[in-house]
Amino acid sequence: MSAAAAVSSTVRVDALTRRFDSFVAVDAISFEIRAGEIWGFLGPNGAGKSTTIRMLCGVLAPTSGSAEVLGYDVGRDPEDVKLRIGYMPQGSSLWDDLSVEEHLRFYCGMFDIYGPGEKRAVDRWMERLDLKKRRSQLAGTLSGGYRKRLALACTLLHDPKMIFLDEPTSGVDPLSRREFWDIIVGLAEEGTTVLVTTHYLDEAEHCNELALIYGGKIIARGTPENLKHAPGGGETIEIVSEHNVAILDAVESLPFVRSAGLYGSALHITVAHKEDAAQLKAAVSRLGISIASLEPVTPSLEDVFADLVRTP
């Protein structure tokens, strides 16, 4: 067994920091990711997710602190890290006028995979990600879902033990998103460690472990279940009414309302205590707006997220 395979933590981050001039984008964060985990990285826009990922992938130098990925220090040995991990950056990393197969061959070259090994890798990942039929199609003409599959295939050719996926499903339709997650879960079951970011919080339910970053600091961690039932998490009330927006306008600035927002066709309101829930009910009935139902629910991850980001 190699030295790298013997470590049970695939990623070890210690007080990792990155500044841009005087602005601190990532502020002394520390965490570990165990082998085989699907580790979800959540947070508002500009929180520091991509900056952290770029440091862990060896493409952006940390300002201070350290991080070890697959046993290599990202500050000292960024090239070793880059060769051993897979990185799917946010946004598009494809060339519109190269075909599916040309992309895969190009990336084989980057990872020194030549000859029979190249053919094997290209065929294997085209097959697995259902890209065979589209092998000669130009990337620019692929639909959003297939572009993401191709970008993923490009990161997997060298069989990395750890992959970093930065918003892999952004802008992808619901069916394709599901298929994409089947692939991610399959890879993790085979032992690949996955760090993934997403703004679709229903997807975060697939993760073994979640971390929420805000203003460059990690403000919450745990399994999806833990986060939803964390002490101090408050009570979430769901209101169903034809007049959601009017109710929202009326209740959101009430002193005991911690966070409130539209949730699909319903309204979710988080308050600190059970007693506040009773107050809320009274306040809503005073509005004289007809409602179909008002009851406590288990908060969704979106409610938890909104609540934490408002009251850090």
Binding site: P44, G171, H199, V245
Partner: peptide
Amino acid sequence: EPTAGVDPVSRREFWRILY
């Protein structure tokens, strides 16, 4: 697809603006 890549809290705000 105005909200692709926009975080959940901002998406809520964005829909408030649309309303």
